[in-house]
Design a protein around this nucleic acid. Structure first.
Lengths: 358, 358
DNA sequence: TTGAAAGCGCTAACAC
DNA sequence: GTGTTAGCGCTTTCAA
């Protein structure tokens, strides 16, 4: 059994209270007494029992984070980086981080959040990968439990969040391709229902509309966010006639998967087809060819989300409870060069033809 | 404030004790009483306060896991997958998972482990990425705190672990390249000090020695496990004359980084140079070309590590406290075809020449 | 079958 | 300055 405060007090010849206050750094303990208590504590290797302390203080100094795991082969660089950001920030404020895993959606997930909220086990929660209608947010809000989300929601709920401006980011990327002469731009959308995918898809549509370029429904396919998924669904875009001259992945992982698959079909990325992604995960810079994408400072987002939650828990007013970060466009080789004039002409022709058939 | 057991008891018109026992499912409560208590609890949305329970029970039903974070741009697919395995397994046994982050090495890290162990906040710890001389293991062992590690150590310590047989795996890969006719095989080693890197490097040396192929010291360079790192240090191998005809990354990330960089130099992977990795992370199958590598079931390892720890905590004897998993060789395109005979001849020539100059 | 009481290890009013 | 006392919310002997 670990050494308790009572034992320290006994050996130092003081009361429990005095020992407690000495170690907590209160001013009303004689310097000499404090010295003695501290040295006894050190000698005994005393470590306060956090559970007891937390029961007494009615706060756990622990943040909760429920990782949405999508099955065994779960490996999203996004989460490890986000987690590192949250974890390091929590650390530096002396908060612990309790991580649970749970499959997204379903009643079980809601229960998990409820338990976390009501069990008194964590002071606040971090919610990630918000959905259009997110029962987690509703539940927490309803129980008035403190949380900060990474991501917005379409429900009419007021809550603090950090989010990327996915639509604005995507508009940058689409415009970039349009400026290079592309007009038939395919889009591998994240699963419907995920909020970030919604905004990214919206940005794509907005940019196309702003240029008066119609979007054919079949240019938009949906992937499961994984590299494998990107590779699979890009086949459907490849099969189109005429096929898109540029393809945007709703996240980098899918973009990279798509790129690899297209290469296996003998296409030259950047010349035969331009590719863009979203996230700027580390592999994006090192893929072959390097991927044009939108940079999202995930680590920073993790930190900021965590900071907001800690501020919230400590009753500090938030400077801004709705943080929206604009992703930065990173142009790399996968966008290729501008389409050659003659080819561009051809594109436009085809575009008009398409329009007619619509 | 959340509803307490006392409140449930009051409303059900029973004592605190009875309420507690009814909800805990003890047999010595009248069925009728139990019904009443349960319905009151449900109506009030009672959730037991876990902190109080844990203080009383002197166990937290929480596992600890300290993530070694190496700075902001931390994103190792390994960890998210391992974490998912651990988390899901913990979940299914009703354990929580407390995740901390800490930079590896240094006294601070040791203290973090000590605090976790002594603070009574977690029942046991999972230690990952063991080092040749690992103060974490020593500290925990010394304080007799339950833990299971993913990885062995060179210190003379008896503790339960799950580990890959990195040497055996690497021997498979090296032999594969040797069988294809390669003789000058470069190796991008993981940072010295990390146990898994030690075994992988050892396997490389063993396989070369078993074939009586000398290893030039400059064939071995050290990378930082990242894709970027792999790309950077492969330059040193590329600069060698004669340069290696095959290059093995100490992990997939570095192998992929190296592969991309070599391609940027105009080399054709598989023909001009063969590449192999280790881990079989998801991107490996989808890289361009797909990467020959050693499959390591990280999710399973996470689960198994977690199971072992839980067994340990519950006093169940471990079937086997030293689990060693043999990675499976996955041959993909990056290994290329066998070297053509004439080229192979040339290789051997050069090898002998090298030997002479040694 | 139920309840009273003790106590897990700690903190914090409140007295002295 | 220091000690006494009363909990935090729960589980668990032990009596009734």
């Amino acid at each position: 059994m670990a050494v308790t405060l009572r034992e320290v007090a006994r050996q130092a010849g003081v009361s429990l209270t005095t020992a407690s206050r000495a170690l907590a750094g209160y001013a009303d303990v004689a310097e000499e007494t404090r010295q003695r208590i501290q040295s006894v504590a050190a000698a005994l290797g005393y470590q306060p029992n956090l559970v007891a302390r937390r029961l007494q203080k009615q706060r756990t100094d622990t943040l909760g984070f429920i990782l949405p795991t999508y099955g065994p082969r779960f490996s999203d660089p996004f989460f490890s980086e986000f987690l590192a950001g949250v974890g390091n920030e929590a650390n530096s404020h002396d908060y612990d981080l309790l991580v649970s895993t749970h499959a997204p959606d379903g009643e079980g997930e809601r229960q998990a959040y409820l338990r976390a909220a009501q069990g008194g086990w964590v002071d606040g929660l971090i919610v990630v990968r918000t959905r259009q209608h997110d029962s987690r947010l509703q539940t927490l809000k309803q129980h008035n439990f403190p949380f900060v989300a990474f991501g917005r929601s379409r429900d009419d709920l007021e809550y603090p969040y950090v989010d990327e401006d996915g639509a604005a980011g995507m508009r940058l990327l689409v415009q970039h391709f349009i400026d290079l002469g592309h007009r038939r731009i395919g889009f591998i959308a994240p699963p419907a229902g995920l909020m970030f995918g919604y905004y990214r898809l919206q940005g794509y549509r907005q940019a196309m509309a702003a240029n008066n370029y119609p979007v054919q429904p079949e240019w938009i396919v949906e992937g499961d966010l994984t590299q494998r998924g990107g590779a699979e669904v890009v086949e459907r875009l490849l099969a189109l006639d005429p096929r898109p001259t540029a393809i945007i992945g709703g996240n980098d992982l899918m973009a990279i998967g798509a790129m690899n698959r297209l290469q296996q079909h003998g296409l030259h990325i950047g010349r035969d087809v331009a590719i863009g992604g979203f996230d700027d995960i580390p592999p994006a810079a090192n893929s072959h060819p390097p991927l044009t994408t939108l940079h999202q400072p995930i680590y920073e987002i993790g930190r900021q989300t965590c900071t907001m939650l800690i501020d919230l828990l400590n009753g500090r007013p938030l400077d801004d409870s709705h943080v929206l970060l604009i992703p930065r466009l990173i142009v790399r080789e996968s966008s290729g060069s501008p389409l050659a004039p003659e080819r561009r002409f051809y594109e436009i022709d085809v575009g008009q033809e398409l329009k007619k058939t619509t």
